[in-house]
Simulated assay, not measured.
Amino acid sequence: MTDRFLQDKAALVTGSTQGIGLAIAEALGGAGCRVAIHGLGDAATIESAETAVRDAGAAEVRFFNADLRDPGAIGSMMREAAEWGGVDILVNNAGVQKTTSLEDADTETWNAVITVNLSAAFHTMRLAMPAMGERGYGRVINIASVHGLVASREKAPYVASKFGLVGMSRVAALEYAALGDRASGGVTVNCICPGWTETSLIEPQIEARTQQVGGGRTEGIADLLREKQPSLRMSDPMEIGALAVWLCHRHAHNITGTSVPVDGGWTAQ
């Protein structure tokens, strides 16, 4: 990427050691950003992610391993990020999913999904956004889901968390809409809502569908797509990364409180 328009900015991307989060971190690095990655994984996974973001062009790369189930750990991470130079761009990507019926879902499942998918974003936003307002520039990009816009069976905790994330993002967008100006870029809050995307998060569903149709992995994926996604194509994580970077431009100063589906027409039906 040759347009390094973010070379004076710093970003924190949660859940960015793989998948969509890593793709976003790489894309931001390509635009010249200093990037703090975050997530789980062994030393080799973390080193690989750091190298990928650095090779993409990031001015600097840092790693955080805060447990997003722990508000205290989130607070420590955000303080360290502030001391590192502040967070101009916050991407809440970390998420968990468990497919289960409402009847079979238990308290442990509900708490696990809501805590990581929704509560963690609340804590990072409340701690990062006041400084964004003071600077007159800030971007919060919450990776919701098509399931923040429509429901599916056997996903009550996940759908609730993503609908909640969309709603919370709209509130934050309203509260910060008037801060900054066109020249500074303003403070915006938006959600990206992917449909079927090629990440490890959906592998259990692909495996289950493959067993149902009695074919191979390709047949399982095709059956998933036919059910929901009219384009019959999955998205690539790098496509989500490119959209996230675009939302960081100053000329996106009036795009706030939106939820952008990347779902091949899923929510148009």
Rank of each mutant, 00 (worst) to 15 (best):
Phe5Trp: 10
Asp8Lys: 09
Ala10Phe: 07
Ala11Ile: 06
Ala11Thr: 06
Gly15His: 02
Gly15Met: 07
Ser16His: 05
Gly21Thr: 06
Ile24Tyr: 05
Leu28Asn: 08
Gly30Asp: 11
Cys33Tyr: 02
Ala36Asn: 09
Ala36Ile: 14
Ile37Trp: 02
Leu40Tyr: 12
Ala43Asn: 12
Ala44Ile: 12
Glu47His: 07
Ser48Val: 09
Ser48Lys: 10
Ser48Trp: 02
Thr51Met: 13
Val53His: 01
Ala58Gly: 05
Ala59Gly: 15
Glu60Arg: 11
Phe63Trp: 12
Asn65Phe: 08
Asn65Lys: 11
Asp70Arg: 03
Gly72Met: 11
Gly72Ala: 14
Gly72Leu: 13
Ala73Phe: 02
Ile74His: 03
Gly75Glu: 14
Arg79Lys: 08
Arg79His: 11
Ala81Pro: 12
Ala81Thr: 15
Glu83Asp: 15
Glu83Arg: 12
Trp84Ser: 14
Gly85Tyr: 07
Leu90Ser: 11
Asn92Leu: 07
Gly95Trp: 02
Val96Pro: 02
Val96Met: 09
Gln97Ile: 14
Asp106Trp: 04
Glu108Phe: 09
Thr109Cys: 13
Val113Gly: 06
Leu118Cys: 07
Ser119Thr: 15
Ser119Ile: 10
Ala120Glu: 04
Ala121Asp: 08
Phe122Trp: 14
Phe122Ile: 13
Met125Trp: 04
Pro130Gly: 04
Met132Ser: 06
Gly138Leu: 08
Gly138Thr: 06
Arg139Ala: 08
Arg139Lys: 13
Arg139Tyr: 11
Ile143Val: 13
Ala144Tyr: 03
His147Pro: 01
Gly148Ile: 03
Leu149Arg: 02
Leu149Ala: 04
Leu149Trp: 03
Val150Arg: 10
Glu154Gly: 07
Pro157Tyr: 06
Ala160Thr: 14
Lys162Asn: 04
Gly164Arg: 07
Val166Lys: 08
Val171Gln: 13
Ala172Glu: 00
Ala173Met: 06
Ala173Tyr: 07
Glu175Met: 08
Ala177Phe: 14
Ala177Cys: 12
Ala177Leu: 13
Ala178Lys: 09
Leu179Lys: 12
Gly180Gln: 06
Ala183Asp: 15
Ser184Gly: 08
Ser184Pro: 05
Gly185Leu: 04
Ile192Val: 15
Ile192Gln: 04
Pro194Arg: 00
Thr197Pro: 00
Leu201Cys: 05
Leu201Tyr: 05
Ile202Arg: 06
Glu203Leu: 12
Pro204Met: 09
Gln205Gly: 15
Ala208Tyr: 11
Thr210Glu: 10
Gln211Tyr: 08
Thr218Gln: 13
Glu219Leu: 07
Glu219Phe: 02
Glu219His: 03
Ala222Pro: 00
Asp223Tyr: 02
Leu224Asp: 00
Lys228Trp: 01
Pro230Ala: 01
Asp236Gly: 01
Glu239His: 00
Ile240Cys: 03
Ala242Phe: 10
Val245Trp: 09
Cys248Asn: 09
His249Met: 13
Arg250Asp: 14
Arg250Ser: 12
His251Pro: 12
His253Lys: 03
Asn254Ala: 11
Ile255Arg: 01
Ile255Tyr: 11
Pro261Lys: 00
Val262Lys: 00
Gly265Asp: 01
Trp266Ser: 00
Thr267Cys: 01
Thr267Ala: 01
Ala268Ile: 01
